[in-house]
Deep mutational scan, measured.
Amino acid sequence: MQNSHSGVNQLGGVFVNGRPLPDSTRQKIVELAHSGARPCDISRILQVSNGCVSKILGRYYETGSIRPRAIGGSKPRVATPEVVSKIAQYKRECPSIFAWEIRDRLLSEGVCTNDNIPSVSSINRVLRNLASEKQQMGADGMYDKLRMLNGQTGSWGTRPGWYPGTSVPGQPTQDGCQQQEGGGENTNSISSNGEDSDEAQMRLQLKRKLQRNRTSFTQEQIEALEKEFERTHYPDVFARERLAAKIDLPEARIQVWFSNRRAKWRREEKLRNQRRQASNTPSHIPISSSFSTSVYQPIPQPTTPVSSFTSGSMLGRTDTALTNTYSALPPMPSFTMANNLPMQPPVPSQTSSYSCMLPTSPSVNGRSYDTYTPPHMQTHMNSQPMGTSGTTSTGLISPGVSVPVQVPGSEPDMSQYWPRLQ
């Protein structure tokens, strides 16, 4: 039975679970980093996980050691009161100082060594604690504590007292930064006198190289990059290397530039699409467009005044059976039934097929058609009795279509119309 579990990581490298990497692998990681390889490249070359490479390099940059820390136990506290007071002093002298600059000053002034120097995250935590204590304490208590930490007896009751030896409130920041720059020169002199001055200088240079600022491109470089971006948004590694040799930039910087440029292009394309949609959409909808001609068919113009009344309900007709019959029939052209047409008796099958359309009241044959006459024609229609054979009435077949029909004066039988409509 094995005491430890061995495995293979996602890159194909072998590791022992819970145990640190061998010293030979750690040394190779540092050597590759000094030669300029990126952590992701080191991870692929040595088949070590990216997190492990970053952790080893980060500890090497901070402490200069590649040895693993002790497994188990607690780390001794490195942010001692003396170190905290120095950090507060540096922050007062130059409020814009960075944590890694404070760390360098602690090393250069001999406050800490490589073994007990606090990390950048520890210094940031100390600065946050100082800021929170400043908010919790009152103004007087804060000034007393700062005077105690600074070891001075001057008056701290006013704002300019934060910067000793100065009279203009805006000047101390520059003086403090100048003092810090002077301390940086002392850093070089002190570290050069040490035993491991060369190694420390190499480590600091490598650290500065990794902690780079934003790349500033010249106009020629920007023009070359934009020209390549117009050709393709995704250049391959050969195109990037050719462009890197042409404009004297690292291939990694060119790759990052193209990634950022593609993101910018997507944002601009989104804005262009929004403007295009806004320009195509009308600002207001016309009133006429809300009524579609496919839904509402136009009603033909009436030929006679009587045809303006298109349904039985508008003429005072309360018989719903006839109203439904007229509205359900398709529109037909106007025609006239003459008196000489043969009077065919209704076929029983045809009569039964339209039995649902006729009223059940037996008085329908005896009703006159003056009910369908509009009010303004009552006088004219009353002067001509319906009993004469020459009287013409208008029957409504569908809305908007008038059918003048000659009705025999002897017997106005409704059943004569249905064979004609089939």
Rank of each mutant, 00 (worst) to 15 (best):
I56H: 03
V78Y: 04
I117N: 07
S35W: 12
A131M: 12
L130I: 13
V16C: 07
P22V: 05
D140P: 13
L11R: 07
P39W: 04
Q10A: 10
S119W: 00
P81I: 09
T25E: 08
Y143L: 13
Q136E: 15
M142W: 10
S24L: 14
L107M: 09
I42A: 02
T25L: 09
Q47M: 13
S43D: 01
I87H: 00
G7V: 14
C112K: 07
E82F: 09
C112F: 04
Y143M: 12
G18Q: 03
A131N: 05
S132E: 07
V16G: 06
S4K: 07
G18E: 01
D41V: 10
D41K: 14
S96T: 08
S65W: 01
G64D: 02
K86Y: 14
V111L: 14
P76G: 04
A88T: 15
G73S: 00
P81G: 15
Q135M: 14
E101A: 14
C94N: 07
T25W: 05
S6N: 13
A37F: 05
L11V: 05
Q10P: 02
P118T: 05
V48K: 02
L146V: 12
E109I: 11
G141T: 12
R128L: 04
K28F: 08
H34W: 12
T63V: 06
A37R: 11
G64R: 06
A70Q: 10
E82S: 13
I123L: 05
V30R: 13
H34D: 14
R69C: 08
A131P: 08
G72E: 00
T25F: 05
I117R: 06
Q27K: 14
A99L: 03
S4F: 11
D140Y: 10
Q135D: 13
A70V: 12
S122Q: 02
I97Q: 08
V84T: 12
S74D: 01
S108D: 13
P68G: 02
N17R: 00
G18I: 02
G7S: 06
G64N: 05
F98Q: 04
K145G: 10
P22F: 05
V48A: 05
A70R: 08
I45C: 13
N116I: 13
S74Y: 00
Q10G: 10
G36H: 06
E133C: 14
R38K: 11
I42L: 02
S49W: 03
K75E: 04
A139W: 11
L127C: 13
R125S: 00
A131V: 10
Q2C: 09
S24I: 11
A99K: 04
R69Y: 11
G36V: 03
P76M: 03
N50P: 00
N17W: 00
G12R: 04
E82W: 08
P95S: 15
P22Q: 15
D144L: 10
V16K: 05
V16L: 09
P20S: 05
L57F: 00
R103W: 04
I66L: 10
R59Y: 03
Q47G: 05
E133P: 13
H5P: 13
L21Y: 06
V8E: 05
Q89I: 12
S43H: 03
E62V: 14
R147T: 08
L127F: 15
V53K: 03
L46V: 14
L127H: 05
P118N: 01
P68D: 01
K145C: 12
T80A: 04
S54C: 13
V84K: 11
P68H: 05
I117K: 08
N3C: 14
I42F: 01
H5E: 11
R92M: 13
E101L: 13
D115Y: 11
E93C: 15
I97Y: 02
N17I: 00
I117D: 14
S6T: 07
S24A: 11
G36P: 01
S6V: 05
S108M: 12
Q89F: 11
